Amino acid sequence: MIQLQLYSTSHCHLCEEAENILEIIGKQHDISWTTIEITEDANLYEKYSLIIPVVKRKNYNTELVWPFAINDIEKLIDLK
């Protein structure tokens, strides 16, 4: 199973769109993701506050910064 992280914050409509994309992809591919609330960590907030949502593939440390689409995430999870 491919593990992703979604860096996000509450009341972020773009983050909600990103989660919807992940849900669609999750029906077609063997993935799981954890949503990480960036406001709970000062370092994460500093790093991601202006660029969220961000999807990160954990074992490759590869990130996608918004805007991204289904095909972008499919490329991310297809890394060998």
Results as ranks from 00 to 15, higher is better:
residue 28 Q to S: 13
residue 76 L to R: 10
residue 10 S to M: 13
residue 54 V to F: 08
residue 29 H to N: 15
residue 5 Q to I: 12
residue 21 I to D: 02
residue 26 G to V: 04
residue 16 E to T: 10
residue 32 S to Q: 12
residue 66 W to E: 03
residue 49 S to K: 13
residue 45 Y to I: 02
residue 77 I to N: 01
residue 21 I to G: 05
residue 59 N to M: 07
residue 13 H to G: 12
residue 12 C to W: 04
residue 2 I to C: 02
residue 54 V to Q: 04
residue 71 N to E: 13
residue 2 I to Q: 03
residue 69 A to W: 06
residue 15 C to F: 04
residue 56 K to W: 00
residue 3 Q to C: 09
residue 45 Y to P: 05
residue 19 E to D: 09
residue 64 L to G: 00
residue 19 E to L: 03
residue 36 I to Q: 04
residue 48 Y to I: 01
residue 44 L to C: 05
residue 74 E to S: 05
residue 44 L to M: 06
residue 31 I to N: 02
residue 78 D to T: 13
residue 51 I to C: 05
residue 55 V to T: 02
residue 48 Y to D: 05
residue 72 D to R: 01
residue 35 T to S: 12
residue 43 N to H: 08
residue 38 I to Y: 07
residue 4 L to F: 02
residue 44 L to P: 07
residue 53 P to D: 06
residue 45 Y to C: 13
residue 80 K to N: 15
residue 13 H to L: 06
residue 49 S to D: 14
residue 46 E to Q: 12
residue 19 E to M: 03
residue 68 F to D: 06
residue 39 T to V: 08
residue 8 S to I: 00
residue 3 Q to L: 14
residue 51 I to V: 13
residue 52 I to M: 02
residue 18 A to I: 00
residue 35 T to K: 15
residue 73 I to Y: 00
residue 19 E to V: 11
residue 3 Q to F: 13
residue 14 L to I: 09
residue 19 E to W: 02
residue 27 K to M: 13
residue 29 H to T: 11
